[in-house]
Design a protein around this nucleic acid. Structure first.
Length: 486
RNA sequence: GCCCCCUUCGUCUAAUGGUCAGGACGUCAGGUUUUCAACCUGAAAACAGGAGUUCGAUCCUCCUAGGGGGCGCCA
């Protein structure tokens, strides 16, 4: 049922991502961008970027920067320079006047108050709250003086407008349900639906892939395309992403800017992988490289139902990508991430050059245990801690009972270990546990508590080696001495 | 209110006019183990409801319910 209406195979694919810069790049926008990018790359086409900044009251320079930055971080590149819609207003106005001259649009002198009253009346009478077409029929000679008119599109009254959508299938709108929309405001600036049509045409866009909140716009835009004598692009309207509770995405769950995901310690590759599986699938494939995504991606495999955002699954994927990442690469990412963390500057100072070296050595043990970069950094904090270590509650418990005594007995055996290597330490500690008739854990846990201040950490022999002889023994002595009754 | 879209395990999804309805995350139970994680094994877990078409419907059609989107001189 989902057939492509046009687009000969020879036609080069040109997609576009067209955010309005009224805020950050949110997660739904990020997925839309990803799908446009994948489709363009899959078909050897182009992805163009268009900033829809015609709402001058709400558009900001900061938002533009945030969106471009977000796209770059996600690893999505675009072709050519971004098109700023505002710079094309003159062209849009010309097209509106052309439609007016051709009798396909008309001047509307209704005031905002009149329109408001009209909507209320329609609602009260149970009719659609659209424009009633008053000025479509009135003679311009009746125009009130001193009022600049808006230009309205003369939408067809009869018949239907059909969208052959690559995702949604064939969608039919009765023309009587689509009113005469304003295409040029009374201040001479173009409105969204006109600008989009003109730009999509002028930019040579072949495929419009966007959220399905635009499905009704597709019908209106189709009418304008026809009135201008242009072919419509191929449409693909993606189902929306909902919050975990099935309701609209809000800031409380997923509707954060991508920079928030970056600050939470997610990796771009993981986020891409997570997002691509929201609404699209390739058999049972779950974890896939970007190359595979591009190779497999197609519009036909996009589902039609909305998906809920699931942080737990994102975390699982992120953990996967983290474990697969080379140690040095993770260190680099952590360094880049630090400035974005609340106490990042202080932490950076505390880590220092030596700390980064230790961190990389500890990385094999650390990356196995973290789902995000932030969590990894937190798990690594024992590396940079200063003596005497603060113990958390569970670590304290491990040292309260016999744990501290065990440490006291073990300490002299460690003091003579030479050289201070993982293998040597393991031999010594295992021998000690053996002789004392203890399971290894009975020795390892108090050690862990004293060395890291926590009940969990990377393997204890790794911890000892990376911390080094002096620091390790000092931390152990701190705890052994703390056992002496005051 | 009107128009449009959607509905398979808790979540993301696969598949098919005849299947034990598959996978992944999560959950639970084991295993491994110096902790945690990772890893391995196993388990529970879904075709929204009702009609119709058909020898046979999760799959096709219609209705209902539920969810979502849209109805601006916003984009």
């Amino acid at each position: 049922m989902r057939t492509a209406p046009r687009a000969p195979m020879s036609e080069k694919v040109v997609t576009r991502f067209a955010p309005s810069p009224t805020g950050y790049l949110h997660i739904g926008g990020a997925r839309t961008a990803l799908f446009n990018w994948l489709y363009a790359r899959a078909k050897g086409g182009q992805l163009l970027l268009r900033i829809e900044d015609t709402d001058q009251a709400r558009s900001t320079e900061g938002a533009i920067l945030a969106i471009l930055d977000g796209l770059r971080w996600l690893g999505l590149d675009w072709d050519g320079e971004p098109v700023y819609q505002l710079t094309r207003a003159e062209r849009h106005r010309e097209m509106a006047e052309q439609l007016l001259a051709e009798g396909k649009a008309y001047c509307c002198y209704a005031s905002p108050e009149e329109l408001q009253a009209m909507r209320e009346r329609a609602r009260a009478e149970g009719r659609a709250p659209g424009y009633d077409g008053t000025w479509r029929h009135r003679d311009p000679s009746e125009a009130p003086t001193g009022v600049e008119p808006a230009i309205r599109f003369k939408a067809p009254r009869e018949g239907e407008t059909v969208i052959e959508d690559r995702v949604q299938g064939r969608v039919v709108f009765a023309n009587k349900d689509l009113d005469d929309l304003v295409i040029l405001r009374s201040d001479g600036t173009p409105t969204y639906n006109l600008s989009v049509v003109v730009d999509d045409h002028d930019m040579g866009i072949t495929h419009v892939i966007r959220g399905d909140d635009h499905l009704t716009n597709a019908a209106r835009q189709t009418q304008i395309f026809k009135a201008l004598g242009w072919d419509t692009p191929i449409y693909a309207h993606l189902p929306l992403i909902h919050g975990p509770d099935g309701a609209k995405l809000s800031k409380r769950h997923g509707a954060l800017g991508v920079e928030a995901y970056r600050a939470m310690g997610y990796l771009p590759a993981a986020l891409r992988n997570y997002l691509v599986r929201l609404g699209w699938s390739h058999g049972d494939a779950e974890i896939m490289s970007t190359e595979e995504m591009i190779r497999w991606f197609d519009l036909d495999a996009i589902g039609r139902s909305a998906a809920r955002f699931d942080f737990v699954k994102l975390e699982n994927l992120n953990g996967h990508y983290l474990r697969a990442m080379p140690d040095a690469e993770i260190v680099k990412r952590l360094e880049a991430l630090l400035p974005e963390l609340p106490d990042g500057a202080a932490l950076a100072k505390r880590i220092g050059k030596e700390g980064w070296r230790k961190l990389e050595r500890a990385m094999p043990g650390l990356k196995e245990r973290a789902k995000t970069l932030v969590e990894l950094l937190d798990n690594a904090s024992f590396l940079f801690a200063t003596r005497p270590l603060a113990l958390d509650e569970q670590a304290r418990k491990l040292l309260d009972g016999s744990g501290r005594d065990t440490l006291a007995t073990l300490l002299p055996r460690l003091e003579v270990v030479e050289p201070w290597t993982q293998a040597g330490l393991e031999t010594a500690i295992r021998a000690f546990a053996d002789e004392a008739g203890l399971k290894l854990g009975k020795a390892a846990q108090p050690l862990r508590a004293a060395l890291t201040g926590r009940p969990t950490s990377p393997g204890i022999f790794d911890v000892l080696e990376i911390l080094g002889r002096e620091e390790s023994l000092a931390r152990l002595r701190d705890q052994v001495h703390a056992s002496k009754p005051a």
